[in-house]
Amino acid sequence: MSNENGQCSSCGEMNEGTCGGEKCSPPPKLHPGGPSKIRNVIAVMSGKGGVGKSSVTSLMAVNLKRMGYQVGVLDADITGPSIPKMFGVKRVPPSQGLMLPAQSRTGIPIMSLNLLLEKEDEPVIWRGPMIAGAVKQFWTDVNWGELDYLLIDMPPGTGDVPLTVLQQIPVDGIVVVTSPQDLAVMVVKKAVKMAGLMEAPLLGFVQNMAYATCPKCGEKFEIFGKALEKGDILDGLPVLEVLPIDQEFTRLCDNGLVEEAPIQVFEDIPKLLKVKSQVG
């Protein structure tokens, strides 16, 4: 169907009102850049901002790397990127032809728009199509090498970037991040429903900021509402991990040292995907 401006609400293309119903087909899947060989793509998404998608993405990358897999991170949050700071990377290396991702201390390739800016706090004031185009380029114009997993850190919402990723990048699984608040869960369900409409495979939820532990007495405080347990079912999907508010983890992220975080999580990801994964 087309809106009054002649833009298809399904494919997003300008078609002067000629596209409709059965005639509208989604755009084709894109191939990763050049010699890249990527076995599995996991999108980390949420309808809600501020629930910790980047924290979850970084923890998943660090722990999969510790398990012996080759892992990369595509930062698709073009206007609010935080992955480079967490990993302490500043610039992509010079290259001819395809771009090369930056490499973290432990050898995790990372691509983010912040790695292409002169200053990390420089704003990106782009409209939706340009933002979605940049994400596509990070898939098609980057030499990722050979990876067992590429993790895509998604922006909040259900707009241009999530639509582009789910339609044009072959996503093997989606991890949905929420916090305990009913308000957050309500908004996050929008992302779950979007994934269902796009027939994208949902792996489960991560409940972030579930509780804080008193450093003196060890008592747990559920600041944002009732915390779940790993393995619980939320909206028909399993809870993969329940993560606390952790002051030390925050310090490590602020100092670009997320790879030193001792948190051991996401060991079940390879089993969930029933993969063709191969330890690299």
Rank of each mutant, 00 (worst) to 15 (best):
V239K: 06
C253N: 10
E146W: 04
S54R: 10
M186W: 11
D77C: 07
K119L: 15
V51R: 04
G196N: 15
K136S: 12
G20D: 10
T79H: 14
S58P: 05
K65R: 13
D235V: 01
P270S: 07
D182Q: 13
E16G: 14
K136P: 12
A43K: 00
R127K: 06
S58F: 04
M14H: 15
K29I: 13
L98C: 05
A134P: 12
V124K: 06
F249N: 12
D153V: 01
Q96A: 14
M14W: 15
L30I: 05
G128C: 03
A132M: 13
E146G: 06
G204D: 00
R251F: 11
E241A: 02
A210C: 04
P32V: 00
V171L: 03
L151Q: 01
G159R: 09
A132E: 08
Q137G: 08
P201A: 05
R251I: 09
L252T: 05
A134C: 09
K29N: 03
K90D: 14
E16D: 15
N208W: 02
M67G: 09
D153W: 02
D182Y: 11
N143W: 06
E248F: 11
K189G: 01
E222M: 04
V192E: 10
L240A: 07
C19V: 13
E16M: 15
S46F: 02
L30V: 06
E259T: 14
G49I: 06
G34I: 05
G50D: 03
D153R: 00
R91E: 15
K230A: 12
C11S: 08
G159T: 08
N255T: 14
L272D: 02
L166C: 04
D148N: 03
V142G: 04
P238V: 02
V89T: 09
I108W: 09
I108R: 09
K90A: 13
E241G: 00
S58L: 03
Y69C: 07
P109E: 00
R39I: 02
P81H: 11
C253D: 03
A210D: 00
T140G: 07
V171H: 03
C217Y: 12
I223R: 09
G218I: 09
W144P: 01
P262K: 03
M14V: 15
L197T: 15
K189Y: 01
G145P: 00
L237W: 09
V71D: 11
V92N: 11
G80H: 08
K48W: 01
F221G: 15
Y149C: 00
K274L: 12
S277M: 10
T158G: 00
V265T: 04
V62Y: 10
P170R: 01
A227V: 07
F224A: 01
L252R: 12
L228S: 11
Q137R: 12
K119Y: 14
G218E: 01
L183P: 04
W139P: 02
M14C: 11
S2M: 12
Y211E: 08
Q207S: 02
P215A: 06
M130W: 04
K85T: 14
G47Q: 03
A76S: 04
G157I: 05
L234R: 05
G133P: 12
A43P: 00
D75Y: 09
C214R: 06
C253L: 09
K136C: 10
C217H: 11
